[in-house]
Every structure is written in C-alpha cells, then in structure tokens.
Amino acid sequence: MKKVEAIIKGNDFERVKNALKQVGIVPLTAYPVQGRGVQGGVPPYDLLPKIKIELVVKDEDLENVIDVIIMSARSGTPGDGKIFVLPVEDAIRIRTGERGNEALY
C-alpha cells in the first residue's frame, strides 16, 4: 500500500476528483493548504492557496493514480503542484476490523 499526497491548484480539484472516480478510486481526503514552490513571479515569502489530496492505494493502483492526477492537473505552467508517494505499513477499517488492501476501497 502507498499513500499518495498531491498538492494541486484549487481550480483543478474537481477535475482530479472526478478523474479518480472514473478509474474507481473514490476514497480520498482533501483540504485547503497554503504553500509555494520555486515558481517565479511570486514574492519569496508569499504563500499561494492550494488543495492537498491524500489517498491510500493498493500497490497495483499506484501508477494509474499518479497518471490520472498528472493528466487532470497538468497545465504545463509553473505551480501545477507536486505528488509525493509514501509507504503504508497497514490500514484498518474501524467498522469491520478489515486490514490491509481489504480496508481500502
């Protein structure tokens, strides 16, 4: 299992969410954040509004999820965002006690 954290432009969120849903990835967490990369035209200490999406996926779904996020959030201009991938040791569905991949979706 992998945790995918994507920081994207706020106006791309609905497109990314819908694209993930189209490939069967519905569970996610999203919240507004502020940050900046190295893009020009922004004073060095100003932060820009972004959306952070977090989801845990099965290893076999990882590359597809990354591709979907890139295809639906890429404009080709600075500030499109970043994707981070982290290992996940376990997942537990509280309601049923299911563990691992069975607890994901």
Rank of each mutant, 00 (worst) to 15 (best):
I70R: 11
S72K: 05
T29Y: 05
E63A: 12
V33P: 03
I53E: 00
S75H: 14
V23N: 07
R36G: 06
Y45I: 13
V42M: 04
I69S: 01
V42W: 01
T29A: 13
I51T: 13
D59H: 09
P43F: 01
V56F: 07
V38C: 15
Q34N: 11
A30K: 04
D61Q: 14
I66V: 15
P27Y: 13
I70E: 05
D80F: 02
P27R: 14
I53D: 00
P32C: 03
P43C: 01
G24A: 10
D61L: 11
G37W: 10
G35F: 11
L47V: 11
Q34W: 09
I69D: 00
G41Y: 10
Q39N: 08
I25M: 07
E63C: 04
E63Y: 04
I70H: 06
L55R: 01
I51A: 01
K21L: 13
V42Q: 02
D61T: 02
D59V: 06
L28I: 09
L28A: 09
G35T: 10
V26H: 09
G24T: 09
D80R: 02
G79I: 01
V57D: 00
L20F: 03
L48D: 02
K58R: 14
G37E: 09
E60F: 13
I25H: 01
G35W: 07
V26F: 08
S72W: 03
D67Y: 09
K50E: 11
L55W: 02
T29K: 06
Q39W: 11
D59E: 14
G79Q: 02
D46S: 14
S72L: 07
V23Y: 12
Q39C: 06
S75V: 03
A73G: 10
K52Q: 14
E54W: 03
P43T: 04
Q34A: 11
I69N: 01
L48T: 10
G79W: 01
I66Y: 02
L55F: 05
P49N: 12
D61G: 02
D46K: 13
V23D: 08
V23A: 10
E60M: 08
D61Y: 08
D67M: 12
A30H: 07
I51G: 00
D67C: 08
V68P: 04
P32Q: 11
G76P: 04
T29E: 05
G40W: 00
L62P: 04
M71K: 15
V23T: 09
L62Q: 09
V68G: 06
N64Y: 01
L47Q: 12
I25K: 00
N64M: 12
D46R: 12
I69E: 00
G41P: 11
A73D: 01
R74N: 12
V33N: 10
K50N: 11
L20T: 03
G35I: 07
P44T: 07
Q39V: 09
G24K: 08
G40A: 10
R36P: 03
E60H: 15
G76L: 06
G37L: 05
K52D: 04
G40T: 03
K21N: 15
Q22P: 02
P27I: 09
P27E: 09
V33R: 04
V68W: 04
S75T: 15
V57W: 00
G40N: 05
G35A: 10
V68S: 12
P44N: 08
K50I: 02
